[in-house]
Design a protein around this nucleic acid. Structure first.
Lengths: 117, 117
DNA sequence: CTGTTGCATAACCAGATGGTTATATATAAT
DNA sequence: ATTATATATAACCATCTGGTTATGCAACAG
């Protein structure tokens, strides 16, 4: 049976959130949403050395957010969905456990604060 | 005018995702979803020193995920909604930009992969 | 005043992170 | 065979992180 249930795997949540914590990596992901890209193509817009980009890609790969292909000398990266969804799920479950919806939370907390004081 | 629009602020996204990348801190947040708690109350379930918990709380506070109150000697922490919502929004906008929904993404990527090869 | 409780802060440490340059490797082009 | 291109890897560095113990300080309790 193929893995279908995406129970947010605690260990990977660490890696996923850590990967998302860097603005360059988020930009890389956004770029990849537009289609696969090689290391060189990714390095160009950022003023970053090629090895730096390779490192970022390795972080994203370890987090499972991307996968690498092989195309001649190029090793293009493309997005993978699962882990990002795990992150969303954690946040959603958290918000659900916490309260009803994020959109009501600030108001709700304000209210609580007022009623306590 | 009060801040109402929660445009995901890039700088804080760094701090928010970084804060969420630690399992202890996620556990602290989950605990706080149950109600405010003092440093001591938070330190007890984890086998962590009190200063370690204080440090985690400072990280969460810098990310804007919690706020501290003053109650006699205690300095209880409580959740704040905004930044977490920013994180959700980033992920949602990303998924939207990327494709239609996370639930369809893996299938979609699989399909793309197949049609390319 | 004295002691205790709750927390913060400082000083320290090992290991991770994010960047660099230099070098190696593999594929392509000449 | 040589050279050029695309990427990886190594070695190095400064800074950040997550933990510790030791200490300081403010707010009670006696």
């Amino acid at each position: 049976m193929q893995q279908v249930n995406h129970v947010p795997h605690q260990a990977n949540l660490d890696a996923v959130f850590a990967a998302l914590a860097d603005p360059t990596r988020r930009a890389i992901l956004t770029r990849l949403a537009d289609g696969e890209a090689s290391v060189g193509e990714l390095a160009e817009p950022f003023r970053l050395s090629q090895p730096a980009v390779s490192k970022h890609l390795k972080v994203l790969e370890r987090a499972g957010l991307i996968e690498r292909a092989v195309d001649r000398q190029r090793r293009p990266a493309r997005l993978k969905a699962g882990p990002m969804r795990d992150a969303v799920h954690w946040l959603e479950e958290f918000s659900q456990f916490w309260s009803t919806s994020f959109d009501q939370l600030d108001d709700l907390l304000e209210e609580l604060k007022r009623s306590e004081s």
